[in-house]
Design a binder for these strands. Structure first.
Lengths: 351, 351
DNA sequence: CGATTGGATACAAACGTTTGCAACATTCGC
DNA sequence: GCGAATGTTGCAAACGTTTGTATCCAATCG
């Protein structure tokens, strides 16, 4: 295989024109069945396949979508959730024969990943995860008239009204978790949240507040503790406040699984048992959670649904672009919210 | 921006030919400095950037490398190590302005990922992780004359003599871990390995054997336990054999961190403490390990070095392809082995 | 001062497809 | 049996670059 076969080579062998070969292999109705099958046969024999680059040049479609992900992807507490999410997206994209280029928000050469990707026209569409994006970049994207879907958390920086946005309902997640604990009889529930520009954690806290308010339980602001999402934080807090877990506080709503694992470890070291002495519900459902004893009761992040919804949205946009129309009903679907659900295991004390 | 600017547009504005624009923007020595800067200025004003597709068509370079990864990437016990490895590779590739398309070994449409990728000529080179690859696929790759480097574990299916191969020395890793335990005075050391076609686990076991032999310690085959890499396995084994950890067995070499975490949990539930009663050294260094109490002493998988070595290798192959030469010295570097190292924390009882 | 060099630029042919349009053959309706 | 419709094919122009070769002009040399 010195030089790969081209449609012209096939054309010569089949004694037809290159256009007929192209049409045959693309199953155009313009060519006779008999010719089609003859051409196909020859192509198959010669192990022919299209040169994607040449094709892209004229169709203006590369068959690649770009995904921008936060640099925090490198840090392990985010890796699991994001990895799983991205893998789901990749799998879903396979169905449409689309490949995925993943880029970090900020790259090693100091140039802007988003601009690079769009300028080079390497991708047909963009998925932006946890969109920590400037207004400037947003308008840059729109100038390029390239389909874009934002996924996962709502960015407070972003005017989402006219954007395609698929996100999880973190308020509902916070409510579900807290309600569950309340139903089990807990009223003094400490809430571990995370200090980050991302809105998702604030929303989980809102959910916590809603649940308490709905049950006429006093909201003690002192019980809302802002951490950093790490094991250490959970561990340190419970060790430091161990005395309060004997009588005062009876449950924890931890907004990350990792902090919950830390808390469990810390409580243990303080002579307290989960769930017997303290009930815990956490958030994310990162897979490790079901291994440790006690197994974590946790709010499942609907990664699969996020992925599916985002990709469906994207497919739609891509095919809309092809036909150039834009129907009314689509506009109503611009924002799509997916619901998390509670996975009850052991740490809440109710199986 | 109805239609993106082309070099012809720039040419017209600058009153030069398209080729001069191309050469100017590519900093060719064939064009006068003055013209160059004039053209550059105009390009900058107009926010011009090359159409990567058109460029690829003639240069036969896409600036994209493909990475084939095992489907087990989906399962969480592999995710962490692989995610980190792939992210490192991605970061390293940024330096060469190369983008990365990651594909699963088997894709949803049932077609062969490797063949797809190569046939379409979408990528300039291939990285194959944990190469569970058939001879047929291997020869397919070579027919395409595309640079390929295999990473991580050695595949028993693969004749690696003529392949570019970057792998970790798992024998050394097994030896290091076991030696450390021996040095701490342990002689009855149980070894958790994993049943998989991948050779890396067998190699770790070989390392374990070497270490014992070197110290004239009898190898008790019964102490080598074949598991599945999960938390459950570690947990169940120690619980079931708890009595033996009081007097007989005094240490564990676990070939995955996860199994070690399971064992720690199980020992605890059996009233045994790590490292006081049982010392543990594990393998992988997955990041979680440093959070849990006791913190894991573990053999660090040299992901960073694997990534760097693989990418360097790839860069080299790519630039060799450009110049078409192949020097002798390169052949000697075909296989590259990187060394793991021990991270001593708490679980081994020696800080 | 004519021939020669060399630097700067332009021309045109690739790269491998897709696709609008024209061309041709065949069939149909009347 | 003739014009129109229909079905099949080929021609050629795109798509936006790169790059080998030709051209032009000024400067240099003998």
């Amino acid at each position: 295989m010195q030089r790969a076969l081209t449609i012209r080579d096939i054309a010569q062998i089949a004694q037809v024109s290159a256009s007929t070969v192209s049409r045959s292999l693309n199953d155009s109705p313009l060519v006779a069945e008999e010719t089609k099958s003859r051409v196909r046969e020859i192509a198959k024999q010669g192990n022919f396949s299209f040169n994607a680059t040449a094709r892209s040049l004229v169709t203006r479609r590369t068959g690649i979508v770009g995904l921008i992900c936060p640099d925090s992807f490198d840090e392990y507490q985010y890796s699991l959730h994001l990895t799983l999410l991205i893998n789901q997206i990749r799998r879903r994209l396979e169905l449409d024969e689309l490949d995925l280029i993943v880029k970090f928000r900020y790259n090693a050469t100091g140039t802007n990943s988003i601009q690079n990707l769009l300028n080079s026209r390497k991708v047909d569409a963009l998925i932006v995860i946890n969109p920590d994006i400037t207004a400037e970049e947003l308008s840059f994207i729109h100038e390029h008239r390239i389909p874009v879907v934002f996924v996962q958390a709502i960015s407070p920086h972003l005017e989402l009204e006219n954007e395609n946005y698929v996100f999880a309902d973190h308020v509902a997640g916070g409510t579900i978790a807290t309600n569950h604990l309340i139903r089990l009889g807990h009223t003094r529930i400490v809430c571990f949240t995370v200090d980050t520009p991302e809105a998702s954690f604030h929303e989980r806290t809102d959910g916590y507040r809603h649940a308490l308010r709905d049950h006429d339980i006093e909201i003690d602001e002192e019980l809302i503790r802002v951490g950093d999402g790490t094991f250490e934080f959970g561990y340190n807090f419970v060790v430091e406040h161990a005395h309060r877990f004997r009588g005062d506080i009876s449950a924890i709503f931890s907004q990350t699984d990792i902090m919950a694992l830390g808390a469990i470890e810390g409580l243990w070291d303080s002579g307290l048992r989960v769930p017997q002495d303290v009930a815990i519900v956490s958030y994310d459902d990162i897979g490790f959670g079901k291994d440790f004893r006690p197994r974590l009761s946790t709010v499942h992040q609907p990664r699969d649904r996020l992925a599916v919804a985002a990709c469906n949205r994207l497919s739609r946009l891509l095919s809309m672009g092809e036909r150039g129309d834009r129907r009314e009903e689509d506009d109503r679907l611009l924002q799509q919210r997916v619901q998390p659900y509670l996975v009850v295991r052991e740490s809440c004390g109710a199986d």
